[in-house]
Amino acid sequence: MTRRLRLVVTPSGASAGAALQAVDLNCVFKTGGADVKVLHDLTFEVKEGELVCLLGPSGCGKSTLLKIIAGFLAPSSGRVLVQGRAVVKPGADRGVVFQEDALFPWLTAAENIAFGLKGRLPGKALAAEVTRYLELVGLSPFRDYLPRQLSGGMKQRVAMARVLILKPQLLLMDEPFGALDAQTREEMQTLLLSLWAELGHTILFVTHDINEAVFLADRVLVMEKGPGRIRREMRVALPRPRRKEGEAFHRWYRQIRSELRSEDRL
């Protein structure tokens, strides 16, 4: 009831500083005869410049939610607003970094990064931008490598650079480091934070890794499944730069884990 009331006071436009609003999202998949409810009455906001993690077990609909925000999928009901404008289709204002390798295999690292800007910038300016973003993700020596010649971590660096170069208002990341080995994953997390500090974009980051969520997030939205909804919202009050070793970090880890565990018991 309280949520409904809040919606009534929030006008259809953006509330101040909200980069992303999801309002009463429902998503139902029709599979054969039975309807599967994937998302149930999901409502949340992400503020300008905020890094929010969607944390939840597999099958809780967090990737579906991201697809809806990206515009790849229409919700059964409800609305998504990005800076006050309703999302109807994919667009360059919402950059997506996928979990799997989604680079164009016939383009080099530099050409993949240039892809979205091609034809929108004169050649020289484009080349300069590409060089800058290659540098930002630490891939300058690999600019002419094809994706199949790059490691998994390098590919995800290219995947990040190719959307960041478009200066999206919102960066949507769907378990982008999930397929990487532990050490590379930590490198990538650190890289993401430094890019975030430098470029200041808004990030919605999907993960099932509690450690990752505590390390990255300003705020964690803990999701539960069957049907997917937000169980709890937690503001991670850890100062940055964060270290994964300290007692404070582990306290947060345990707290969020118990939140997830209590869901398992249901």
Partner: peptide
């Protein structure tokens, strides 16, 4: 999807 989210 990659193309679409880069505005192609």
């Amino acid at each position: 999807q990659s193309g679409a989210m880069m505005g192609v």
